[in-house]
Amino acid sequence: MKKVFFIFMIMLLSFSFSSSIYAAEKNALKIPSSVLDISKDNTYPNPVQDLPYLQPSDFTKQLLDTSEVKIDNPDLIRLMNESSVSGTPLAIGYRATIFLGQWALNYESTETATNWEYQKVNTNYTDNRGGKSPMQMRYNQEGQKKITGGLTANVPNAEDVKKMMLLKAMKKTSLPLSFETIIGGGTKKEQVYNIPPKRMGYLYAYSPAVNEKGKVTYGEVYIVLRGNKQKVVVKNVTSQGIGAWIPVQDHVSFGFVVSEIPR
């Protein structure tokens, strides 16, 4: 009986492990083969976007647990981390309400999609109409190009909203995202594209971007002190739909076209 049970448990664990791998592969973002990483080739060194999830302090965790509205805003969490309330036995009957202001409290993502040809950044051209053998061409960025994303609508606390959307999109896609990225002039890749005789070759380069959509929640935040107890109270809660285009940093999508006539 023990042997049968042991075999059953191994089969169950194997099935769970296989299911987890399948789910991870199913949800993984597939980058097309036409998209190349140029982080080591880019002549313009883009700053790395480092927006780690801010860990709340023990005091902040206690406060957040008392809130009826979810709070994810890293700047608000940082403000709470820098605050403290000292408990004392003499605080019986002590009452106070501290207004922290109107905040973008959290962002809930509903859709994350990638446009691999968000913005054209370069065109390379080679004419082999007079040739008798294939010619080769490679990507060469002819001029510096800045790609800028942004929110699709004007909303209060826009910078806080952008931070929360960026964090959520980076977590969902595992891509290096930034609302602004630059491709330096003279950036090259060794990928070869062959142009047959009597043809012209066009190599188009595009900057990809992520389209993030969801809902942002706002509210007035108060810290309420009653004796030795503290809690967060959120008033006048509102929600608003929002979208954003967020460029993928140091990545280029290529489209190669061969033609008999100029395009």
Rank of each mutant, 00 (worst) to 15 (best):
L177P: 02
F256D: 00
T123A: 08
M135V: 11
S239E: 10
K70G: 12
Y202M: 01
I71Q: 02
I77R: 03
T88Q: 14
T110S: 12
V252R: 05
V121T: 04
G243L: 01
A96I: 10
F254Q: 11
P74F: 01
V221T: 01
S239A: 09
T110L: 04
Y139A: 07
N115T: 08
Y139H: 05
E180V: 07
T66W: 03
I147Y: 06
Q102F: 14
V233A: 12
V210C: 03
S178R: 05
A96F: 13
T114S: 13
D41R: 14
N228T: 06
R199A: 15
N194S: 14
S174C: 11
Y193G: 02
Y118P: 07
F254R: 06
L79R: 10
Y218G: 02
N81G: 01
S84W: 10
L29A: 09
E25H: 14
I38V: 09
T123E: 10
M164G: 02
Y53V: 15
K163V: 10
P247E: 05
P176L: 08
S133H: 11
P56K: 03
I31N: 00
G184T: 01
P156K: 01
H251F: 13
Y107I: 03
A209I: 04
E159G: 09
Y206W: 03
L203N: 06
T152L: 15
A158N: 08
E190I: 07
I223K: 11
E212G: 04
M170P: 09
S133C: 07
A91L: 15
L100Q: 08
N106T: 08
N27Q: 15
I242N: 03
Q240R: 08
D160T: 11
Q144N: 09
R95H: 13
